[in-house]
Amino acid sequence: MLLTTQDDSLLRVGLIDFERSELDPAVRDFARLADIWQGRPDLFEAFFTGYGRPVTDGDRQRLRCEAALDAISGIAYGHTHDDPELLARGLRTLRALRADTFI
């Protein structure tokens, strides 16, 4: 992510989430973030502009697959562990994938 400082110079900032860290393609993490840009293609594009490279067709296809798996996992976990927020996010993602409005 690139941020602008007060003197208009660029500053690169990174974020590492160690809670669920594992060796996976980066697109797996993007699936977990995707709820943020649902229905907002401008935010999707802004995220990847900050990421530093454009989204490829392969990224988009893989992201849809990873999002479906993450949604199903979230629904199962949310239901089993009485986590309505996780359950709702999973259902929202599946609805967006089915309606072809995910990205």
Rank of each mutant, 00 (worst) to 15 (best):
D70G: 02
V13N: 06
R64P: 02
D59Y: 08
E22T: 12
A67D: 02
L94Y: 07
F44P: 01
E22H: 09
D82E: 12
P41M: 09
P84F: 03
P54A: 09
T56M: 05
H79G: 00
I16V: 10
T56R: 04
A68C: 10
A96T: 01
V27M: 06
P41V: 07
Y51S: 08
D59S: 10
L43Y: 14
R62L: 13
D83N: 15
E85A: 14
D57C: 02
D7M: 06
D29I: 05
F102E: 03
D42H: 07
Q61C: 08
D8P: 00
D70C: 08
L69S: 13
H81P: 00
R40K: 08
L97A: 04
L43P: 06
R60D: 08
S9Q: 11
L91E: 13
V13H: 10
P84L: 05
L11M: 10
F102L: 12
G14L: 10
A88W: 01
G52S: 08
L97D: 06
D42R: 07
A76C: 03
W37H: 02
S73G: 05
G50M: 04
P84Q: 06
R92P: 00
G14D: 15
R62P: 00
Q38H: 09
R89Y: 04
L33G: 07
A46I: 03
R89C: 04
W37E: 02
L86H: 12
R92K: 15
P84K: 06
D100S: 10
T4P: 00
A34Q: 11
G78N: 10
S21N: 06
T49Q: 11
E19S: 13
D82I: 04
R60Q: 11
E85V: 14
Q61W: 05
D70Q: 11
R12K: 09
D70W: 12
L91N: 07
L91I: 13
I16G: 00
A67S: 12
D17K: 00
L69K: 15
L3D: 11
F102M: 07
W37F: 08
T80G: 02
P25V: 14
Q6Y: 12
H81K: 12
V55W: 07
W37K: 02
R60G: 01
P84G: 04
R89G: 00
A26P: 15
S21Y: 02
L33Q: 14
